[in-house]
Amino acid sequence: MVGYSALLGPIGGIMIADYYLLRHQQLDVPDLYRQQGRYTYQKGVNYQAMLALALGILPNIPGFLQAVGALPAGTVWPWLAGIYYYAWFVGFLLAGGLYVLLMRPQFRSAPASSVAAELV
């Protein structure tokens, strides 16, 4: 069913954008497990990621509702209902792009990563 792809596409887009585009494949592994590490964000929630996820899912909702019969056929614009059949790609690109835009200011203001220095 296409329904799962409407959720998994945005999640994948955020994860790929974070790891490859923002962090350039550099993770501080010990901080992944620290209670107050750099990946804790605000009380354990990255609100920028949650916003990007919600906005990545949003365009797929009308087509999903029509596909499951919650909305009668023809009540959703055809182009908007058609987006649902490409839900994974739409969600992946939209959520990933929005996540990069929302997180970019944090990565510009952050000091240079000390991960390379820790490895030496």
Rank of each mutant, 00 (worst) to 15 (best):
N46I: 07
I61G: 01
I61S: 01
L65P: 00
G44R: 05
R23L: 11
Q35C: 06
D18S: 15
L27W: 11
G74M: 02
G56V: 07
Q48V: 00
L58G: 02
L65Q: 01
Y19I: 14
A73I: 10
A49C: 05
Y39V: 00
D31M: 07
I16A: 15
Y39D: 05
P30M: 10
H24K: 15
R34G: 03
P72I: 02
D31F: 08
L71Q: 03
V29E: 14
Y19D: 12
P62W: 02
R38A: 10
G37T: 05
M15D: 10
A73F: 07
H24M: 12
A52H: 01
G44D: 03
Q36V: 13
L21S: 13
Q36I: 13
R34D: 07
G13Y: 08
G13D: 08
Q25K: 15
A17H: 13
L22S: 08
L21V: 00
F64N: 12
G13F: 06
M15W: 05
A52Q: 02
I57N: 03
A67C: 00
A17Q: 10
Y39P: 09
D18W: 11
V29A: 13
I57A: 02
L21I: 00
K43N: 10
I61M: 04
P59H: 05
Q36L: 08
N46F: 11
P30E: 08
I61Y: 01
Q66H: 02
A52G: 02
Y33K: 15
R38Y: 08
L53N: 02
D18E: 13
G63M: 07
K43Q: 09
V68H: 00
I16H: 12
Y47Q: 14
G12P: 05
L65G: 03
N46S: 04
A17Y: 14
Y20E: 15
Q26I: 06
Y39A: 06
D28E: 12
P62H: 03
L22C: 11
N60Q: 04
M50K: 04
Q42V: 12
P72K: 00
Q66W: 00
L22G: 11
V45I: 11
L32C: 12
F64Y: 08
Y39E: 06
V45T: 07
P30G: 14
G12W: 13
Q42A: 09
Q35E: 09
Q25C: 13
L21A: 14
T40L: 08
G69N: 03
A49R: 06
N46H: 08
L22H: 09
R38P: 12
P59C: 01
I14V: 15
H24D: 15
M15I: 15
G56D: 03
A70Q: 01
H24Q: 15
Y19H: 14
M15C: 12
G63C: 05
L21D: 08
Y20H: 15
G37Q: 06
Q36R: 04
P62G: 09
D31W: 04
Q66D: 05
R34N: 08
Q66L: 02
L65W: 00
Y39W: 09
Q25L: 12
P30F: 10
